[in-house]
Design a protein around this nucleic acid. Structure first.
Lengths: 248, 248
DNA sequence: AAGATTTTGGTTATTTACACCATAACCAAT
DNA sequence: ATTGGTTATGGTGTAAATAACCAAAATCTT
């Protein structure tokens, strides 16, 4: 490395050519269809170039005065009408050449994607096809080739989903207010696979943690003994927040 | 939300005013001084406005054709000469008004920071004061008020450091090729605090995992029984990678 | 030679993880 | 009404991991 590079270079008047960026927000939006036990991902069909007619993760470019988080929520609000969800920032993909709009004619414009990960309640999600050529929930295993580097982002998002589910109480953000332990278990099985735990042990461990409140109500759905309805007790969970590995 | 907003807005010709970004990379660079058992953070003094004369995390603006990761490594290379390190992306801070250069005169320029987290070997790190008004290792607890939102970034980085140390073998990226179990333990204690584990249990657990290779050599440093020298066996660790919670 | 120091290699009690099972309470069919 | 199917509940017992604690070995210091 040349000595010349050892000067500070974070000044606007730097002689080294800085990149000018458009910043996009792309969301990996998951939901769990508890009827069919399927893990779904939301994809939209791009109406315009580049990648017109290709499926992609829903996204948008960040507007003046808009925070990244606000842009991420706007994407959600524009594509699906849902207010029961969990959302957090995932990772920022920003290599040159990740977007064909960057080159060759406009080589000094860079497109950067701050990806976000969301989990929404499937039953409440009402898809809005406005502004896109198509919109659909795809089972994770059947997601097609996506535009840009969105398949890579999706892989990243799925890993985060599994981790979050294991170590954080995000399940309760998308479950109904009251739910059975079977509902909860099915959600975990759908995301993590059957092998992660026996139902009986899952049950015992969770009840022992003490943040599931028995409402006293029972529910009977078809055959079988009626199940107790529980609700998440956020206050009781609070002290467990510290110990990261306490969950599931 | 108005119906107008339901159109797609990720097209360059969108009528909604998009923000133009300069993208910076700011690094939270940790090292562990094993002589004095101190966890250190690298800070630099800004020579120019904004925040001239204030301490800040070392950073740079991303150049044309440069990837985010490359920019992060460039910051490291410009500030400290070290080739034993671990580095990964941390989080992207991009709200409006996080940088005074954004407003009010140039309200359509946004500054976004893709923060990275690094752990470097203290003994190898040679500080380079070129291009800044000052550069220093600060013990974590004594880090002063920093420019921009860098204290927040630092908090975020410290949390990541603790998690990474517990669940990933990043310690071996900054330890010497061969080391004693005492060396390893001291590193953990310095970052995580005394309470995380008894030395005897730490030892037993780690040896049982089977990726620490006894070199057969012994070392004698002052008083006490000579310690065995171990080295990290990456191949033996490989199968443990999957189970996230296997470490420490 | 004695004591201090540090590593080594345990022991033991407690808790947690895992696989498995018996019963209870419902439904549906006979 | 009885029987069998189905699902929830509430347990076993064994293996493994965790945590607190301890004794001996091998060095240095006095």
């Amino acid at each position: 490395m040349s000595a010349k590079l050892h000067r500070t270079s974070d000044h606007p008047l730097s002689p080294v050519p800085l990149a000018d960026f458009k910043v996009g927000v792309d969301n990996v939006i998951f939901s769990v269809d508890t009827q069919q036990n399927r893990l779904l991902v939301l994809v939209v069909m791009r109406p315009d170039e580049p990648f017109a007619g290709h499926w992609s993760l829903p996204g948008t470019l960040v507007r003046q005065g808009e925070s990244l988080e606000a842009a991420a929520y706007r994407v959600l609000a524009e594509k699906i009408r849902v207010n029961t969800l969990y959302l957090e920032q995932l990772y920022t993909f920003g290599g040159p050449d990740r977007d064909p709009r960057e080159s060759p004619q406009a080589f000094n414009v860079r497109y950067l994607s701050v990806s976000h990960f969301a989990l929404v309640r499937f039953e409440d999600a009402e898809l809005i096809a406005d502004g896109v050529s198509g919109i659909a929930w795809y089972p994770l295993a059947q997601v097609p080739q996506l535009a840009f580097d969105h398949n890579e982002i999706l892989t990243y998002g799925y890993r985060r989903l599994r981790n979050k589910l294991e170590y954080s109480p995000i399940a309760f953000d998308v479950l109904p207010e009251v739910f059975t332990l079977g509902d909860l278990y099915q959600l975990y099985v759908t995301v993590l696979g059957e092998g992660f735990s026996d139902y009986s042990n899952f049950r015992a461990r969770l009840l022992k943690l003490g943040f599931l409140q028995d409402t006293g109500q029972k529910t009977s759905r078809g055959a079988g003994r009626p199940a107790s309805l529980y609700q998440f007790d956020a206050a009781a969970f609070e002290p467990l927040k510290e110990k990261a590995m306490v969950f599931i």
